[in-house]
Amino acid sequence: MADKIKIAILLAGGCAGCEMSLVDMGDTLVNALEHLEVVFWAPTVADVKYKDLEEMPDQSIDVGFVDGMIRLSEQEHMCKVMRAKCKVLIAYGICAGLGSIPGMSNIHSAEELLKQGYMDTFSTDNPDGVLPQPEYTLDGKYDLTLPKFMSDVRVLDEIVDVDYYIGGCPPHPDFVAKAVQAIIAGNLPPKGSWITSGKAVCDVCKRNPRNKGKNREFVEHVYRTWEKAPEDDRCLLQQGILCFGPFTQGDCNASCLNVNMPCRGCGGPIPGVKDYGARAMSVIGSILGSEEAVKELAEKYPVLAKFYYRYSFAGSLLERKRKAVKGVK
């Protein structure tokens, strides 16, 4: 009987949805546990503490998963510990891979974010314009401290070398099951790759024009999802409802399309794409039929960065360089 594979899971700055997709695996996880030993899963399961992980010998864990983006210095520290202790480290979920939705906070300055949260929101009662502070003495006697946030959201590979990436917000439990089985079987692609079938969402979508032997046509108008009821059985993008299916990993089996909503790219880029938002502009640009259509797009989606880069802003080419030059602390 072969030794069990040791795995470790760390939740950094995420919403815990990726953890829930592991829990949602249900039976598959229970069966997989015959071959896996979870030596660390924090902070979700706390009987093995952070300091216990730090005391484990280096490279003693076979596979480590990190989900969530990184915004606090303790998260950064624990990611480095995970890298040291794990032979293979996986960025699990699109937050760890490319920053996901919280990554959009990098579009704004820290001052803007704090001001909105603590001063400008409708129900906020803040007559003296106070902001949460790293050190504060209450009533002249209670010293209270808060951690400092780093100035930017970072993704896992800006902190440590990452061996594999799994996309999804969160990764679909069925797909995670396949990935876990591949790990158990030792069946992994070259280091630095995304673990994916390689198919785009279009490839697995029932609405693909190719399924009817049709070619794609240029799109003359752009519709927001509330402006048009999509025709059944017809590609949404072809109807002018912008969908990111052509350049997004389709391991989700086109989940959103199954409920008649367009893909927004949580699966991450298909293989060969270096910058998700750039590819989005390229593909959408080439399927739109005129400059007028592009202008309509820009009017209806005025902040393109929050549209194309919704899941990938923090991990985009320009953003990475900006952070590397500035230094994030």
């Binding site: 579009i107 938002g277 750039a278 502009m281 390229s282 959408i284 640009g285 080439s286 739109l288 005129s290 400059e291 259509a293 592009v294 202008k295 797009l297 820009a298 902040v303 393109l304 960065a305 194309y308 985009s316 320009l318 953003e319 900006r322």
Partner: peptide
């Protein structure tokens, strides 16, 4: 033509990214 439709978006995006 495709170039034009891409570059129009790209110039807007570069502005939004702070460059």
């Amino acid at each position: 033509y495709k170039t034009a439709r891409r570059m129009l978006q790209l110039e807007e995006m570069i502005k939004e990214m702070g460059l």
